[in-house]
């Protein structure tokens, strides 16, 4: 057998690559924290529910969670603007180099972070190293209908485009790569480029406030690139140099 000894090469920071490919803008000022994205994501990506005890112990499987904090005490109490936190699809992702088996790996063609479920051996190092804490682990066999008989009928809802994960596997937001792939495939079959706004992840699709915008960040005319150009924009934990692909627009009274 001819063995290909080529190891995936970690990309350098050439200007071109820094431009990125897919990106997201989340406007915290109009996010109402309604959790539609959370539910939509779960339905699209076959995310299991874990039950009350595990949910209360930090084992929820949400790929996107909405954070909020309290400031001050009554009556001057304020809630910080809702902040949906999902995988930031870092260009220089801390989760990637620590995986011993390349299960957490960068997709060079799409410039997003991948989690290859079937390669994952469950060391959970990537989750430790993720500064955003957006990786979730299948602590139990949450999807096994033999162990959870209530799933027998519920599993009819599973999306056939997305792998159903079993115990011991790390997972995270994929920017709905099945939708990206589907749209790319359609565009290719029609002999054209992917149009702006054609790829819509489940969260952005559901968001009643239209607070989530998704698209190509390397295209300066795309909706997402335009939305990101504002003084309100920032990246989460920018100081770590992870080059996230999700831009947050600050909430509150900033113009």
């Amino acid at each position: 057998m001819a063995t290909d000894l080529q190891l995936p090469v970690f990309t350098n920071n050439s200007e071109n690559e820094l431009a990125g490919r897919w990106g997201m803008v989340i406007d915290q000022d109009i996010c109402t924290g309604c959790q539609a994205c959370v539910a939509a994501c779960a339905m699209e990506n076959n995310i299991p529910f874990v039950g009350e005890a595990d949910a209360g112990y930090g084992r929820t499987m949400h790929w996107i969670r909405i954070e909020r904090f309290w400031q001050g005490t009554f009556p001057e109490v304020k809630m910080t603007p809702y902040q949906p936190v999902l995988c930031q699809q870092c260009h220089k992702a801390p989760c990637e180099p620590v995986c011993p088996v390349f299960a957490s790996v960068h997709s060079v063609s799409e410039d997003i972070n991948l989690q290859v479920y079937n390669r994952c051996v469950g060391t959970r190092y990537c989750a430790n190293n993720c500064p955003y804490q957006v990786r979730v682990f299948n602590w139990r066999d949450y999807t096994d209908a033999r162990q959870r008989p209530e799933l027998v009928t519920l599993q009819n809802q599973l999306n056939p485009d997305v792998t159903v994960r079993r115990r011991g596997v790390m997972e995270k937001c994929t920017f709905c790569i099945q939708r990206i792939r589907h749209v790319e495939d359609t565009a290719q079959s029609e002999g054209r480029d992917v149009r702006d706004g054609e790829v819509v992840p489940a969260c952005a699709q559901a968001c009643p406030a239209d607070a989530i915008v998704f698209g190509r960040v390397d295209d300066p005319t795309s909706k997402v690139s335009k939305a990101a150009i504002t003084s309100r924009g920032s990246h989460m934990l920018e100081e770590l140099g992870t080059l996230p692909r999700v831009t947050y627009l600050a909430g509150g009274s900033a113009q």
Binding site: F102, V105, S107, V108, S109, E110, I112, L114, V116, Y117, N118, R119, D161, V162, T163, T174, I177, Q178, R181
Partner: peptide, 11 residues
Amino acid sequence: TKLTDCSLCHY
């Protein structure tokens, strides 16, 4: 690059 990308088949 595209044809050997993990995300081509695994997601």
